[in-house]
């Protein structure tokens, strides 16, 4: 088989391959490292962090849906300081790029977290804007271009040399408007998609399965939505894209890249098969080789639209 250069450059962060794992589905990597060396991955988006530790939402926090799941974990996490003290030292010993994922209640909180992470040794900061803005009646930051831009500016101001990637919400009318606002505000990259809001009801008890009533949909069911959004965003902004949403196999990852993603994250698929990200990496290499590419990066943006 022809040798394929699997390395990619995501906003200055060079990864040995384009396969990353999605925030919240992989913890901080320890559990999966019992199955295989997580250095096999290009990078790891860590569990979403908040300024202070959070307990998360009451259970049930998950419901299975056709080809997907709904979750309402509610950002249970040890807080940014707990992450830096207890998880980061272990992760830094692995040969894998570390992407911290942060959520805040106010733009200032995002700034404080970026400040703390700026000299901690993480390779990138992914900013989750699918959180309620407590100052604006709980409206999600990621649904209003001006609010997303404000968070982006705060993050950039305090992140030092660490690249900032804004994670876009799919729960919007026009994702390109948000992407443009984020690029104009100085973001180094965007990742998408976060989960799509959904609901499931037990017909007999008439209760929603999730204790929070609604939750976020992920898994293979969302793949076509994600590919479409990556394509639209790629046609709008110049900054690189980390594509995710429903990627379970190499062909899915190749679709993401053809649509315009520089790298791809695997999330929910890890629940069905802990080895999924490794299989996606191997399969992606095989696809690139079969197509005679010398670099996997040649897939990026290679779709031939009608």
């Amino acid at each position: 088989m022809k040798h394929v250069d699997m390395s990619v450059n995501l906003a200055g962060m060079v990864m040995k391959n384009p396969v990353v794992v999605a925030s919240g589905t992989y913890g901080f990597g320890r559990e999966f490292n019992e199955f295989y060396d997580i250095s096999a991955l290009g990078g790891i988006c860590c569990k979403g962090l908040t300024l202070h530790p959070r307990e998360g939402n009451p259970p049930p926090r998950i419901a299975e849906t056709p080809s997907g799941i709904l979750n309402s974990v509610g950002l249970q996490n040890p807080g940014v300081d707990g992450f830096i003290a207890h998880e980061l030292p272990w992760l830094r010993q692995r040969d894998v790029k570390i992407i911290a994922n942060i959520s805040g209640n106010t733009p200032e909180e995002y700034g404080i977290m970026c400040e703390k992470l700026s000299d901690s040794g993480v390779d990138m900061i992914e900013v989750n804007v699918s959180c309620p803005n407590v100052k604006c009646g709980g409206l999600q930051y990621g649904t209003v271009p001006a609010m997303t831009a404000e968070v982006t500016e705060q993050a950039k101001k305090h992140a030092g040399n660490v690249p900032v990637m804004i994670k876009l919400s799919p729960n919007v009318t026009d994702i390109t408007a948000i992407a443009r606002a984020v690029e104009d505000a100085g973001a180094d990259a965007v990742s998408l998609i976060n989960t799509i809001r959904g609901m499931r009801i037990d017909v007999n008890t008439r209760r929603p399965i999730l204790h929070m009533n609604t939750g976020g949909l992920s898994g293979p069911a969302v793949l076509p939505v994600a590919v479409r959004m990556v394509w639209e965003v790629a046609n709008t902004v110049k900054i690189p894209i980390l594509g995710m949403g429903g990627v379970a196999k190499a062909e899915d990852a190749a679709q993401m890249m053809l649509a315009g993603a520089t790298a791809v994250a695997v999330g929910t698929a890890c629940f069905a098969d802990p080895f999924a990200p490794v299989k996606v990496r191997d399969g992606l290499e095989a696809i690139a080789a079969a197509q005679g590419l010398s670099r996997v990066g040649e897939l990026t943006g290679g779709v031939r639209p009608w």
């Binding site: 919240g24 913890g27 999966f32 569990k47 998360g56 259970p59 974990v73 249970q76 802990p274």
Partner: peptide, 13 residues
């Protein structure tokens, strides 16, 4: 109810 079953996703609280 579980997601990952191995302690990574924090679903089974």
């Amino acid at each position: 109810r579980m997601g990952c079953g191995i302690g990574a996703c924090l679903v089974c609280a």
